[in-house]
Amino acid sequence: MRVDSQPRASVEFPRMSTNTSTEDLTWFGRRTVWDSINVMEIGRFRSLIWQFALRDLKVRYRQTLIGALWAVIQPVVTMIVFGVLFSTLDGRPTTSGLPYPVTSLCALIFWQFVATSVIAATQSISMNAQLVQKVYFPKIILPLASMIPPLVDLAIAAVVLCGVMIWYGIGVSLQILWLPLIAAGLFLTALAAALWFSAMNALYRDVQYTVPFLISIGLLVSPVTYELTAVLERMSPGLQFLYCLNPFVGLLSLIRWSILDTPFPPLVPLVVSGIGTTILLLSGVYNFGRMERLFTDRV
């Protein structure tokens, strides 16, 4: 039952003075979805993004024993495990002919970024619930800021990738210039997933237990420890389509193409994956904007 429907009109107070200027006030009412991703507004809070990122970085490195080394150990160990697994099972994870450690590590460090940033961002709003209820800032700042420390990890791991490439004598060609754009696409896609999960987790805490599971499945169904063409050629068209809907398939293949000069990924899977990416992005942003108003009242 409703305790009170539309509130009754209250007393009108006499205006204090008649010739007041009110036209230069900035007005606020119900938020719209688009208020949540108002780039100007987010830009005004950029120093807060840095402070949150800095806080997370400092706290993490102060509490861990091996610190930055962790960023390297995870992709390297994953690479070794899958390398051994594939060779034991007599699998053929690559079609490019590149040494497995290079092609695998190249995608793994970017996947590692997606994994850690999405997991961190999922909890960003619920963990800052206290703050969300006591100060105003665009809430999108929280998932955004929690994706910066994983970027630092990515930079550290990239150094190791360079070392491995030099060891195998593999250089880069001109299409490395596309990497910033592709990496930005990957960042946005991870952000989109993070927006979905962080918004849902603010209201339903079981999301944070679901995300690590999804991430570990994601590692298997994305071209990370194997190359895209190596699986596509062994799939039925229906399965190919399903597989390519994964928003990360196209981007991870493109990363390999730009860094390692593997053949350009087949166009149709790329387009299908691009559609998946776009849907994830738009829906993530829209859903976050829709749910943002609930954070303060119901976190």
Partner: peptide, 22 residues
Amino acid sequence: SRITEPTSGRFGIKGRVGSLLE
């Protein structure tokens, strides 16, 4: 202080707002 949105109506503000709720 814009921490939570009004369900109805609107308010206008001129100038930078600082809120100290804790």
